[in-house]
């Protein structure tokens, strides 16, 4: 979709991420304490694509919000590169399941808002065109968000986050609301963006196939309290085949670990 030269211009420096002994306790309205995350440690190399997988309530989104700086941990430390994370910043872009486009702005102005928020719109306005081309939305520049399909809206949200050249891109189930076909197409798009730009990506997902298809490593989490149960490395070369025997074997193993394989299921080739 884009030539290599255009992609090179958009290349940014990626950063590593370090999560060390992080816990997060939510205090609910009636005063009860709920441990959302308990002693989580995770190290992500610059340029890596890591998935967080686990059932609801395992603290995946909480961890993402902590890394984004939107919430503060109850204990432990978070670092991006060598710097501690103390609040939200444009170096850590975040894309939610709901695209959360500003409905009062056109597609173009939504993407520009990343630059406007940092007061660099004047100098960097020409970047916006590159990013609209990158996500294939040039012809929708003046459309309002409600006129877009779910997939298009999510592409705008990606472009809006990417226009700031974040060192880390945090994705909170970004494709969760899309239909199966759009989702698979978008997985390829996100992979393409990742490969072109080399940004570190941390992807929260419910979808095991998505995690296997996309990530370098899968971090499996368990709920109550949220903690990391296991980290699985995926060494298959990209582009991966969704129906290859290695893919299916891995999928079976992960389902078994999550106890979703079925009553009498046997993991193949164990």
């Amino acid at each position: 979709m884009v030539g290599a030269t255009a992609a090179d211009d958009l290349q940014t420096k990626a950063s590593s991420l370090l999560v060390r002994n992080v816990s997060k306790v939510h205090v609910s309205a009636d005063g009860t304490h709920v441990a959302a995350l308990s002693d989580v440690s995770l190290s992500i190399a610059a340029g890596e694509l890591v998935s967080l997988v686990g059932p609801s309530g395992c603290g995946k989104s909480t961890l993402l919000r902590l890394i984004a700086g939107l919430d503060a941990p109850s204990s432990g430390e978070l670092r991006i590169g060598a710097n501690p994370i103390s609040g939200p910043s444009a170096e850590r872009g975040l894309v939610f399941q709901d695209p959360n486009l500003f409905p009062w702005l056109t597609v173009r102005r939504n993407i520009e808002s990343g630059l406007a928020a940092r007061n660099v719109l004047r100098e960097k306005r020409h970047d916006v065109d590159d990013f609209m081309r990158l996500v294939g939305l040039e012809s929708f520049a003046n459309a309002f968000p409600h006129q877009l399909s779910g997939g298009m809206a999510q592409r705008v949200a990606l472009a809006r986050a990417l226009v700031n050249h974040p060192r880390v891109l945090l994705l909170d189930e970004p494709l969760g609301a899309l239909d199966a076909f759009t989702r698979m197409r978008m997985q390829d798009e996100v992979l393409r963006l990742w490969q072109n730009r080399g940004t570190t990506m941390l992807l929260v997902t419910h979808d095991i196939d998505e995690a296997i298809y996309m990530s370098d490593r899968i971090v499996m989490m368990t709920p109550r309290p949220g903690r990391i149960e296991r980290i699985i490395e995926i060494n298959q070369p990209r582009p991966r085949q969704r129906n290859s025997s290695e893919f299916l074997e891995l999928r079976g193993r992960i389902l078994e670990m999550l106890h979703f394989a079925g009553e009498n299921a046997q993991a193949p080739n164990r």
């Binding site: 939200p88 910043s89 939610f96 500003f102 809006r160």
Partner: peptide, 24 residues
Amino acid sequence: SYLDVARTLGAGRVFLIFRVAIPA
């Protein structure tokens, strides 16, 4: 979530009030 998104885009308080909260 509009405010959260704006924060992760690097928005300060002025942007949050005048470019997110008031239009919304």
